[in-house]
Design a protein around this nucleic acid. Structure first.
Lengths: 169, 169
DNA sequence: CCCAATTATTTTAGGCTTAAAATAATTTGA
DNA sequence: TCAAATTATTTTAAGCCTAAAATAATTGGG
């Protein structure tokens, strides 16, 4: 036998040696590493420089985009977190004076969440810094590379969504 | 005035309108969306099909790569989580019989963690499924696109590390 | 009209996560 | 040698997160 790596019978190869997906696994682990690395650094800077957590910052970022406010359900969809999770997060941000909530006039089950003027102005300061951090973190990529990465991630997002819907439906 | 978008004095532009980093921000948000989307789906399938959480799976994955076991400190570095976090995670995996710990003979402060035979064989079944899920999720990308994405993420990782070290040191 | 289904939110139970302080063992340098 | 510094781990306090069940309001079909 000259090469022990090659199965004896090519016909049975697919059965005996399942397809190798190690490259996709490496790709996923690298994507996850990038995300974890950057997210951790953003968390650290938000805490050190503004004494704010990332979930609170994210919630305020969503509200800043919608001047008329949003319901908790809308927020939970946009932030991709569970509904129950938002209850306590919103509570804390109300307590700290960053946001306010009022019961919807057209649907008394729903609450409309809004930034307070103080919350909005504080958020804008943080957001400007945050944007600069992100630019710094991606600064090692050329404009062209950033554009390519953007396109490939768009495709990845689509591909992932298809795989997810394929299971759920 | 024909165009209100252009500052009157080009000299002062850099001061009055800070650099625009919205593209980098969009890039980061897209990266984060991909990561969150895929991670959420992996969590869901691990729970539904194997009744295991992602942190437990990740811990076992690290141990599977090192047959001689690891200390908690090594694990915490590899998994990029805090030391204190591992204490309870390891406790639960010991309780469920997936891993075992013994005090190091050369350093009585340290513990060596290892997969049990049952834990190892259970992990291998899960890992094979997990690998197939990831392949499915990235299935919408060609080989070429996967290779490009891999390269761009490697560069992103480097760029992020530089930005992080630049602050810490 | 009215009740069943739906929708919005909260509660609950359990797990994950961190930073910081505490505990315990080892190493190092005078 | 031996005390100070370092290293490994645990504990603590607080927050984040989820799924599932519960509560409360609205909507739609008969």
């Amino acid at each position: 036998m000259s090469n022990l790596q090659i199965p004896l019978d090519a016909e049975t190869k697919a059965i005996e040696t399942p397809e190798d997906h190690r490259d996709e696994l490496r790709l996923w682990l690298r994507l996850l590493t990038c995300s974890t690395l950057i997210e951790g650094e953003v968390r650290r800077r938000l805490r050190d420089q503004f004494d704010v957590t990332l979930p609170r910052f994210d919630l305020m970022a969503q509200l800043e985009k919608t001047p008329d406010g949003m319901t908790l359900s809308d927020l939970s969809k946009r932030m991709m977190v569970s509904n129950g999770n938002l209850t306590s997060l919103v509570d804390r941000l109300v307590t700290s004076g960053h946001i306010e909530r009022r019961v919807s006039e057209i649907d008394r089950r729903a609450q409309i969440i809004n930034l307070t003027p103080a919350g909005r102005s504080e958020f804008r300061v943080m957001a400007a810094e945050h944007e600069a951090w992100i630019a710094e973190i991606f600064g090692g990529l050329t404009q062209r590379e950033q554009k390519d990465l953007m396109r490939l991630l768009a495709k990845t997002k689509l591909s992932a969504r298809n795989a997810i819907i394929g299971v759920a439906q």
